Amino acid sequence: MHILNIMLGKGHGGLEQVAIDYHLAFESRGHKVTTVVPPNSWAKTILLSFTSNIIDFKNAGEWDPIAAYKLSKIIKREKPDAIICHGNRAIRICLKGSNGSAPIIAVAHNYKNKKFDKCDAIFCITKQLVERMHSFGIPEEKIFHIPNMVAFAEAPNRPTLRTPPVIGAFGRFVDKKGFGVYIRALAILKNEGIKCNAILGGDGPNKEKLRSEIKQANLTNDITMIGWITDKDAFFKSIDVFVLPSKHEAFGIVLIEAMNEEVPCISTRSEGPIEILTDKMDGLLTPIDDAEALANAIKLLLSDYSLCTQFGEAGRETVRTKFTMSVVSKLLESSTTKLLPQFYNAN
């Protein structure tokens, strides 16, 4: 198959990472992949490290009529067997520019779903999103559950708990990521006399707000803000416990990345993580926006190194069986192969 993989985001987040992973996954199964991305984007920089099958695509937004025309020329030239779109902008432009020449597959990355009913198939990253698509009246044969993925890491050599232990979290600094809850939980631990250091990686519009909250909680010497993380392996090696405090998390790629490195994990019971972690089996789940519960979960892990080891090993096994590229790439291939005859027989 030849896959045209379209992602028009310019950020440094899950949307971009998944588009990169789709390119790698289809290539690993022996298929040709051409990825369409904005010039000078972070995604393009990463793609260039392993492929030259990239097309630069400038656009002024999803309502850009010139963009639709330009994309129609690309589709006509590339003659893909299937077109995979990441994000609402890519979907809208592709629906205008494809002329029905190949099936359009929308990847449901989150709950902001527009025009999905107009696509030929939908790849949903969670079972909850599968049910959401059903609720829109989209036929079952068009909906596929395809979780996000990571490349399975070599067996990590995890250190024993540091003294004091190091807690880590990172992501985009926006309200839904719940980093204020993370700060309040760490303040509770400090007030109880539990010594630990913390790292907060990331960037975003709430950066100064979070810095102020850290200062108000008297944690300036306890939490280090390290900016956006470019070397995730080094980050995971530098921490003893990973925390995902999100109020809303459609999936949580960072969670499976941490589990992949055998880091014991704590997450809130947000949308994606409850389909990844099994509470008290391969990690801990806490209520959303509950700093006290989060503090108690951290305290439990810091008091029991054997539990850290247990959750770390079990988490990595969860990733190996459900979320590795070798597993998910087969799902991508079989799902795409299944829908192609449906499309071409109908057209």
Rank of each mutant, 00 (worst) to 15 (best):
I54A: 05
T34Q: 03
K247L: 12
D282H: 00
A198K: 02
T321L: 08
S135G: 02
N157Q: 07
E275A: 02
T126C: 06
L340N: 10
T34K: 11
L24P: 09
S335P: 02
K32Q: 10
A291W: 04
L161Q: 07
T336I: 07
A106V: 10
L294N: 05
E292H: 11
K127A: 09
Q128K: 09
I125H: 12
D304L: 11
K207T: 00
Q128S: 12
V33S: 15
F136G: 11
S135N: 02
R29F: 08
L219E: 08
K79N: 13
I105Y: 13
K215E: 13
I146K: 07
V327C: 06
S49C: 02
L302M: 14
C119S: 11
L300G: 07
K176I: 01
P159C: 11
S101K: 01
T51M: 01
T163M: 14
D282E: 07
F26L: 09
A293R: 05
G61P: 01
V130S: 09
K115M: 07
I138C: 09
T286G: 06
D56N: 06
L285P: 00
N345I: 05
G283I: 07
E78A: 07
K207Y: 01
E333L: 08
T324W: 08
P38Q: 02
F170D: 13
I125A: 09
K114T: 08
E271L: 08
A258M: 00
D290H: 11
T51S: 10
R162P: 04
G252Y: 14
P341N: 14
D279P: 00
A82F: 00
F323N: 04
G14E: 00
T321M: 01
C94T: 04
G315T: 00
H109A: 13
L189S: 08
P159G: 15
M225N: 06
F26Y: 12
P273L: 05
N197I: 01
D279N: 04
G30D: 04
H12S: 03
V36M: 06
T321W: 05
P139C: 14
T224S: 08
N218F: 12
V263I: 02
S135E: 06
T337I: 03
L71T: 02
R172P: 13
P245H: 07
